[in-house]
Amino acid sequence: MSDSPVTPVLRTVGLTKQFGGLIAVRDVDFEVPEGSISSLIGPNGAGKTTLFNVIAGLFDPTSGYIEFMGRRVVARPERSWLEPVLWMTGPAVLGASAYGAAVAGLSALVVEFLLFAALIVLIGVLILASVRPTWYVDGLVRLGVFKSARPNDMVAAGIGRTFQNIRLFANMTATENVLVGMHDQLRQNPLDAVLQTRRQKREESEARREAARWLRYVSLRGHDDDLARNLPYGDQRRLEIARALASKPKLLLLDEPTAGMNPSETEAMMQLFARIKSELGLTILLIEHDMRVVMGISDRVTVLDHGEKIAEGAPAEVRADTRVIEAYLGKGAI
């Protein structure tokens, strides 16, 4: 299984992330094969969550890159200050020529036309940016201002995730949390909402039914309209998974999904992961400390220590690896 030629859903190449003097992730090459459950393990501070955050688009890699579904995800260069400059260039040029025309004594009609054109250009770009954000962003990418590898773009590309410390929207209900997860799937825009179009009403009621289905899928019952912060701990973990699934990801990143659970709850979670893999056909990458979970459900395990990949392979191989044992127990343990 470990080296089968399955296409990787996710591949990192020479990925490095540095925070000031600290290199949190160093030159990591790894792959997540399609349809697998892969685990990322390592001692505390090994850089697992940082790697997750880079994959999710929250941080740009210092060097190296990520390939998702065979397409390279490029980091944004820090030149976003150019964007307002570009906005102003058109209107400024037109405004300046209006001034020039006025000084040169051309007719008021020409001057007014140029001023009007400057205004139209400014408002036109604004409307384009809000009505067709993808065209606008593509344009900016072509001009080299920035690349749109922001977290929400990664969600649109098909990466869903949960958090190590639960980060539900505490003051929203369980259903609403799942609906936020569906944000990218829904097509209604604010104008639909104001005008209460038929599309808006139909989509909204369908979305609520679908949210309810996701809550049932993770076995969350009777809490649909409860605020997320009032749910029991285990249910909050389940709700996070439902919220991530609702974005219809191809790759699901789970950051310590069984942390703080008792053995029977952990068992139920493992069954849920197996179901997600077989029924929904998702690829799962998880960070986990509980070795029963890692060894029990993973097809492939990657071990990080001090930001570097030290071992990779099937669970049994990794368990026997001397460097892994050293990393966990310290040198001399062997």
């Binding site: 999710a56 929250l58 922001r150 977290p151 969600v155 649109a156 958090f163 936020v180 944000h183």
Partner: peptide, 16 residues
């Protein structure tokens, strides 16, 4: 509302 509650999490759930 989700952006107000947790901007980063909202972004990671696909909210622009």
């Amino acid at each position: 509302r989700s952006t107000a509650l947790d901007r980063e999490a909202a972004q990671l759930m696909g909210v622009d």
